[in-house]
Design a protein around this nucleic acid. Structure first.
Lengths: 262, 262
DNA sequence: ATCATAGTCGTCTGCCTGACGATAAACAGT
DNA sequence: ACTGTTTATCGTCAGGCAGACGACTATGAT
């Protein structure tokens, strides 16, 4: 910009298409899953891809991502302060991908966003017959996560995601794995009321490790502002009734929940 | 994308201008400083702004940021493996800013990057007479950093940065403050050989706090892979000669350098 | 010689962590 | 009713790391 030419020399201007792509993560069963949509047209027709779409003229990037998320899942973005009973998700910007050849048709810069959602009944196929699904991240990336139980190695031939979406997904998963260490974001994977065991299973699914229930319980209940008891109990997991909690006001965890090494 | 319209419906396509903006940080004296350029034309003529420019057709986002950085400072991006003797910097993508009104002339999406550089003699005014300068972050943001020494409160009337660059700078500074906790990035602010005291002054300048020299020395020399002794000593800081170190191979610090609370 | 400055090595105490024993409260099956 | 299984929750103990701070060392300045 400080070179000889003017910062806004028209000869330097090149039009780009700008899209938002979404890495929507949830925990289903004991697996970290991502939302994938099947492409209905070339390129990569029939392959799975991350949901996304163009940014419209009047909206900013976060609004575009929230709109796409609502279209795909019906989820609303979690506003700080509002506490909608269901259907809220955490949404944050992830990174931007703009390599010249990433879309063979035109120069597309995609601002990827990361959304964390509690387990939903089923992805809302928003009018597209091709459909959407929750797919285990392990299957989508064709890799074995650390600490995997070794089963279900033959589920689906790992057709790679379209475009550079495998890298975007990998970046989003790594962001989620890292962020639940020092923030209370893991509660975004849980319903409004949850037990310590359910929260532990979220950490185990995202990190792909087994955690000691006793130490986890001590840490998570001892971190100020992380969890507040809601009064009730539940036996939906079997065994002894467990105390129900809600997410506390803290956003950063002090001390953090450090992920075990190796 | 899964709505009724096709994912690439031309009616949804809207051309954007895509730029890269740079938050270039360095430590000069005892202050964290950022590179600022003075705008030579409207809008915001005469105001300070972050360096940046358009992404060209054949380059990706990282290449565009590296080119802008080289044009402004002469710095090369630190390749993993190559160890150029001088003039290398760390460069990473920061975030993307695309609010509709952020540039009054047209819809501009700016992919901001964060660069960390050792102290340089002077910013290279790359042909633009308006010039560039290293400005203390405190002055650019018009805020008092935590632990500031209370002096120099009257240096410059805090004319705010152009566009939304104050927010971009604030995000970059917060990223730097956070990243030197759990990565070895603080060495990017140091020359190739440095002492423990110089590294400590980097942490103190970035965080705006005072650190105990004895505990810092113990931590930093005890973290495996962080520092490797280069053999020499120096007295350039006065006092007893200090051992010289180079950055070790580690990129993540274990245990991390936790920033003191409050 | 003395002081000021900066670097380096130790010590001590408290907190956090991982490993793991023990108890409690539900359900399933006999 | 009893037993086994599952999950939750409380405790204990040893090791590691962090903050607070004392002590000593090696240089330059006065």
């Amino acid at each position: 910009m400080i070179t000889g030419m003017s910062p806004y020399d028209p000869s330097a201007f090149l039009p780009f298409a700008v899209t938002v792509d979404l890495v929507v993560l949830t925990v289903r069963g004991h697996a970290l899953c991502a939302l994938a949509v099947r492409r209905g047209e070339p390129p990569f027709e029939g392959r799975w891809a991350l949901p996304g779409g163009f940014v419209r003229g009047e909206e900013n990037l976060a609004e575009a991502a929230a709109r796409e998320l609502a279209e795909e899942t019906g989820l609303c973005v979690q506003d700080p302060g509002s506490d909608a009973p269901t259907g809220t998700a955490h949404l944050e910007q992830l990174a931007t991908y703009g390599d010249p050849g990433r879309d063979p048709r035109m120069r597309v810069v995609s601002v990827a966003h990361l959304a964390l959602a509690p387990d939903l009944p089923a992805p809302r196929a928003g009018g597209d017959a091709e459909g959407a699904r929750w797919a285990p991240v392990r299957d989508l990336l064709g890799e074995d996560l650390i600490g995997g139980d070794g089963a279900r190695r033959d589920a689906e031939p790992p057709a790679p995601l379209a475009f550079d979406h495998a890298r975007i997904l990998a970046d989003g998963v790594e962001r989620a794995r890292s962020k639940i260490e020092y923030s209370s974001l893991a509660t975004a994977f849980c319903p409004s009321e949850f037990t310590v065991g359910e929260l532990r299973r979220v950490y185990e699914a995202v990190w792909g490790v087994a955690l000691d229930p006793r130490n986890f319980h001590r840490k998570v209940t001892g971190t100020p502002g992380f969890l507040v008891p809601s009064g009730g109990t539940t036996t939906r997991q079997g065994g002894r009734p467990a105390q129900l909690f809600r997410a506390g006001g803290a956003t950063v965890l002090n001390p953090p929940m450090l992920r075990p090494e190796i």
